[in-house]
Write a protein that binds this DNA or RNA. Sequence first.
DNA 1: ATAGGGTTAG
Length: 642
Amino acid sequence: MFFDAYSASKLFTASTLSPFSSLEYARKVFDEIPEPNLYMLNTLIRAYSWSPEPSESVKIFLRMLCESPYFPNKFTFPFLIKAATKLSRLGVGQVFHGLVVKSSFGDDVFILNSLIHFYASCGDLDFAYRVFVRIGEKDVVSWNSMISGFVQGGCFDKALELFREMEAENVKPNAVTKKGIKMDLTLSNAMLDMYAKCGSVEDAKKLFDEMEEKDIVSWTTMIDGQETATWNALISAYDQNGKPQEALAIFHQLQLSKNANPDELTFVSTLSSYAQLGAMDVGVEELRLICSTECMKLRSSPMLLLLPMYYACACSHSGLVEEGRMFFNQMEPVVVPGVKHYACMVDILGRAGLLEEAVEFIEKMPITPSASVWGALLGACKIHENVELAEQACSRLLELEPENDKALVLLSNIYAKTGKWDNVSELKKRMRVSELQKERGWSSMEVNGTLHKFLAADNSHPLSKEIYSKLDEIVAKLKSSGHVTNKSLLLQLVDEEDMKEQGLNLHGEKLAIAFGLISTSPSQLIRIVKNLRVCGDCHTVAKLISKLYNREILLRDSHISSLGARPIRFDDELDLLAFSEAPETIGSDGGLVDEDVLTAVIWGDETETLLVREPLDLSSNSVSAVTHVSLFEKSHNTNEKP
DNA sequence: ATAGGGTTAG
């Protein structure tokens, strides 16, 4: 049916793009193609990323990895990231991000821009920004993506700051070339929107006047923005000058106006006016009506609860508490209070010194108090120097977040504040011990049905002597091959420098690998499981041993991951990255993968690329990272697997 | 050989 791959590709692309043929049809065509090429795979990934089934993109991607002779190329990733964006699956996109970093496309501005957009749309502005700052040559889309990410996330200050930064960066070439910079229309419009939302009509007006090109969106944004800002300015002016009735009159006038677009700011001022009149119930009722049609954001905004605080800068503490309490009780018909609202209330009560009431309030909560609730109580205990309650709050918090060091630090501050220095040092000791316990790791290896377990510097194994001599041989080989132990990666608290090096070399992983080398045949896979994350040095060593001894090694981290995908580590230099999707979360809703867990392990060493698909091991549902030192390596040039 | 990123508000 198909005469050659090129025409088939062309036909296929046309069928995915054409409005006259469905994606299902394109898929049928695709399924008839015995060996789809990279272009076709990419095309289908793209088509699905636009479709209502973006998870199909990921499935096709898995097929590319497992069944095709191709590796993803620079075109693959924007499509995949688009799919992850549509899926709103942070973990999925993080896997792709990991692959990008480790692949040869880490500097591709197209891919990085789509990652910014992805992270921003998942609400992770922090990650979006991390990606953004690392782009060497930011283009207008990079800036635009980041700025609109901030705008959409409500971080207007940051958006503005970035905008200024962008202007500053553009000023230089501008001065040299003496040419006017034509601002990107989309960006200008986004900026207009931002100014309008911030209520700074003058800035919006200034920008609008400067814009060389304006479209319908520019005009609409400007008119709407000016209008809303004008309404808001009026309402809040009356409200803040002790004229709530006038403020409300304006608000009602606004509601009658057809074109008006009340926003969060409008509601804040309006509610404040109702609060001033002591008619919060009326205000809430009115809000309820508005909320049902507009302003969805406001419905879930815990800011509402804190609202009275902003307008109470003269109010007594008890007055504030009254308002908070009243607001909390009255919000229920409008919004089902979430845990954040409860935390806010605990905060209000606690700050006012009503610690007992705060505790009662927590006890009566219909939902399980979160760490933030206990954190609010703990914070209040610090203000009011209540050591006993602080201890309780802290221990409840630690039950939920055992590794929350901040809680212990806070408690220790409370001890310090109340002069309990013994407790301070006791706590510091405890923190150090838990720090040590945290890193107590073991590695295990199965040989012929027997599990062999190795702790760091372990010498309990019957073949210990042989293992250590093999290890010496390995170390010698590594040294002669130029490998230097990276001391900074040591996670144990050891004081002496030479001890550090020794400690590193004696991680259980290395013992297990040495044992693997002497106890398995050359064709066997050396498969090691580590209870904690594998340190960078062990990873590197595993790769080197794999090369030196020509052995395939699979070294696997396991990490309890109730949240599903999570970065094992993400530091500023991106020198060590590991992301994965936990098997128990994948497939449960999105049905992304069936038997394969998509796993990427990314390390800073640029010389090797590892991407592995690890068959799902159902007995271990806490797997979060797999290091597969495979014998085949990626070829960057051909995109074909050897 | 073919292809890629951001896009306001309603």
